[in-house]
Nucleic acid binder design. Sequence first.
RNA 1: GCCGGGGUGGCCGAGUGGUUCAGGCGGUGGGCUGCAGACCCGCUCUACGUGGGUUCGAUUCCCACCCCCGGCUCCA
Length: 484
Amino acid sequence: MVLRVFNTIDGKLEEFRPLLDTHVGMYVCGPTVYDWTHMGHARTYLAFDVIVRWLKFKGFSVFYVQNITDVGHLTEDSAEDKIAKKAKEKRIEPMQLVEFYMREYLKDLDLLGVERPDISPRATGHLIEIIEAVESLIKKEYAYEVNGNVFFDVSKFEDYGMLSKIKPKAMLAGSRFEIHPDKRNPQDFALWKKAEKNALLKWWSPWGYGFPGWHIECAIMGLKYLGSQLDIHGGARDLVFPHHENEIAQCEALTGKKPFVKYWLHTGFLTISGEKMAKSLGNYVTVREALEKYEAEAIRLFVLSAHYRSEINFTDKRLRAAEAGLRRLYNTISSLEEAMEHSVKRKLTEAEKKIKKKVEKLEFEFVEAMDEDFNTPQAIATLFELSREINRFLGEQKQASIELLKEIYEALLEKGKVLGLFQRERIKKPSEKLVNDLVKLLVELRENLRRKGDFELSDGIRAKLRESGVVLEDTSEGCKWKLT
RNA sequence: GCCGGGGUGGCCGAGUGGUUCAGGCGGUGGGCUGCAGACCCGCUCUACGUGGGUUCGAUUCCCACCCCCGGCUCCA
């Protein structure tokens, strides 16, 4: 079956064919690491995690690059580097701040079960490449230098606006941006910025001390690791303009190869109370906070219960619903595991042939759903249907064929894995608290038996517990216990 | 203002020119249970923003309108 993906650049579904038969070069814009990762970010990375998993499931080899931006991102009001600003506040080295939040970011995604990209290159590790690229763009007359700033001349790039459908002339209409006096045209964007004398983040360049503009780092790292043409480039919707539009301009101007990216994939926003979750709006929930309240796989099920391009609203009710749904799926898995323990080796009965067929049909529907632009909500629906069929089957059968149960079990787990589900450690190690609670319960129960004079049973409990390493001591102040 | 995306049953959320359909959560009735839970079955009124149009037939296509969200150099 063919995979079809929705390409932002022409706004429609297209058959997915990588440039080199089964090899996929994929780039996703990573975070600027100056603060905790929030659920809005997680939504995007979770979506692309499933996209990568599905591509691999389909037999593609995927080379996945996701950058870490650690310089060049400016605040709106003071035009100060976000990282430098925060580092100043905290009185620490900017790269110390970067290192901290980068590690926490990776940890957050690990906790959510997101597979790491193949490489996570950092902007500051590519200053040489960036400077070279800027020089080259100047030489090709796509860029110009004024007072230590280098700008990309948008008027030289004919296709500008092809991704976002924004016309350069119309751009200024609702603009909230103050135009830099050195720009030839208001829509030109900075490739290299002159650094203030006391700037914490600055590097020497042919134009003096400065730092890279926001869009160039992704462009250059994309080219460096994936070549002049990428199969997939992704990110959230808000990156379409200007970030991705500018990447196209820079890369195509630089390499002369079109298109820079074959398939542009963009995720919808995670909202909260119907509004975009964003740092600047202050309405965000960090991944860490979410994980304190909800299990990682419940968060995942919640995110995947809406299509990746749709908006999804973060509410407690929905997370709880996801938890309940997940519990249901896990119940089926447990039932299957239990059934396998007393299954038999024999030919399939009629009922077994029937369930086998149903499972195969639902597996097919799962694949169909995922092939249609990674339709996870529909894929999840087939998982629930599968669960219901299995529950019904197991309820009716006393024993079943071991081969069949194994087959069903593996089918279910495999589909779950593609979505990053059912990875939970199911053999739970008892927590200290649980042991305490259980022993306390037994002790109380035993006290009741002793009061009733049932010493045979109460002594039996004591003996059994001793075998398990729990020693009970009946004292005048009541029963005390300890572990051997 | 310009440009996108969207409005589906109590809540969430897929989908489609037509006959049985999503799916989940919640509620409710029943089955199974000594009870509870899990699980299964049923129900949750004419579900598809409003008004037109095309069509034998539209939630799905076209037009207009209303509302929501987003982008228009901070953003995943």
